[in-house]
Design a protein around this nucleic acid. Structure first.
Lengths: 244, 244
DNA sequence: ATTTTTTAGTGCGCCAACACACAGAGTTCA
DNA sequence: TGAACTCTGTGTGTTGGCGCACTAAAAAAT
């Protein structure tokens, strides 16, 4: 892990939707214990089974949750950007990460050690509720991914994943290689090459050597399975009050 | 839904592991609000999105949690027997079922309406902890199923499912058809026929017209993917104190 | 006892994804 | 400038599961 502390010099205050949704007082108490850190591509924040040392609120960074599989590579079961947080299961009072957590998109995050987080959690019913809601959404999205992985072809799954990442990257262009995508979606690299090439030919995306650009977002949404919409719907339904 | 009230006449007291793990006082308070009911095969307790009217503690019944998929049939993402309960997400204070819940194995269950359950939940830290632990286990098993569904062939998945069902049925023989299994595992009926036939030829199971018998449990464990063991491990790790 | 319904087994062509291997092109570094 | 490395594209044969259609046999209903 190669995390650096970052001076919070930017004029725009760092933004995480869940933090923003907290009452000002609760948020301030929490922020006092937070560090703004930079997360680098492929950093591993923790592995399944590890103790949860810190909670992360991504700002621009994107975190992949990966379920490891004996013998196989693994399978992404969740994606965390500034709409969420990493470490939500702490609300279940179990100090054990259910999944690998690795950085899929470099950027900053607010980090807080588990002990102060748990202390604030006890004091803040608003934070408790937010975590419960986010956990509920995560469970729904996990099941959605399970079904999607079973029934939908790679091209549609890839389109969905690109949309989810674009939402969290807040940019049309981001860094990703076919190899990494293959790992995430649990398919061969060649499968990604083929699917990506198809999306390219349809002029929905463009890419070269690790840089993907969304060209036609509406088209990509049409090319994706509606699991993408389903995920958004459940988030809006449960966490609708949270500003995006 | 065709549920009948059942006289709790049996000499052996009905047994649900989670209820049994509660302190006697908390359990008694809860049981006062419980009805012992009979659940019939294919009963639908609720659909995804429904309000959670009741919580169910299976005794001999087995409940399937199914994530519906637009266009496709659905995919089982959880199995609840007397080692668990249905309605665990109520602890997240969200009155919305994340999955379909349908009876996969007929039998009795203790049922309690949501309002008294929530009231008892507030009063019983032991019940709160148990639900948190069970929810954590369920999340892990959900991810396990997601990965299993992606990477393992039907025959191994079928073997795993038969073992899970045998555990919950507490019997070597139970009622199940190929059509139902196909729905549950998200494959064609013919795929089940083929896989079941293979297990039959290996003398691990026997079956005829809706009745399956486990013949060689050790052999079946060897034929299953280790997702079966992984599920058991996480349950034992988190809920190890709970008697089986 | 005959018909109808339910459940299981078989055959055929098809396709998405697999495994493995290698080629070409851009990037980095010496 | 050339070598080493990284990333993407292509080719060949294989396979697990799909869709569809039909047969066979057991159970239930009339």
């Amino acid at each position: 892990m190669n995390q650096q502390h970052v001076q919070p010099t930017s004029a725009i205050p760092p933004h995480n939707c869940l933090l923003a949704a907290l009452p000002a007082q609760d948020r301030e108490r929490l922020l006092k214990h937070c560090d703004l850190i930079a997360l680098n591509f492929a950093d591993v924040l923790y592995c399944a089974g590890d103790s949860i040392s810190h909670v992360y609120f991504p700002i621009e960074s994107i975190i992949s949750l990966v379920k490891p599989v004996a013998g196989s590579s693994g399978l992404e079961v969740g994606l965390v950007g500034n709409e969420g947080l990493l470490g939500v299961t702490l609300i279940l009072e179990i100090d054990r990460a259910p999944f690998h957590a690795l950085i899929q998109g470099a950027g900053t995050a607010l980090r807080i050690a588990a002990p102060p987080f748990l202390k604030e959690l006890k004091q803040s019913p608003a934070l408790q509720l937010l975590l419960k809601q986010y956990l509920y959404v995560s469970i729904n999205q996990l099941a959605q991914t399970a079904a999607c992985t079973r029934f939908h072809v790679v091209e549609k799954r890839l389109a969905r994943w690109l949309l989810m990442t674009q939402d969290r990257a807040h940019a049309d262009t981001f860094h990703i290689t076919h190899v990494f995508l293959a790992y995430i979606l649990g398919v061969r690299r060649v499968g990604i090459t083929k699917a990506a090439n198809s999306l390219l030919k349809q002029k929905l995306i463009s890419y070269r050597r690790g840089i993907v650009t969304i060209v036609d977002r509406a088209g990509l949404e049409a090319a994706a399975c509606n699991c993408y919409q389903a995920d958004n719907n459940i988030y809006a339904l449960i966490l609708g009050g949270v500003e995006k």
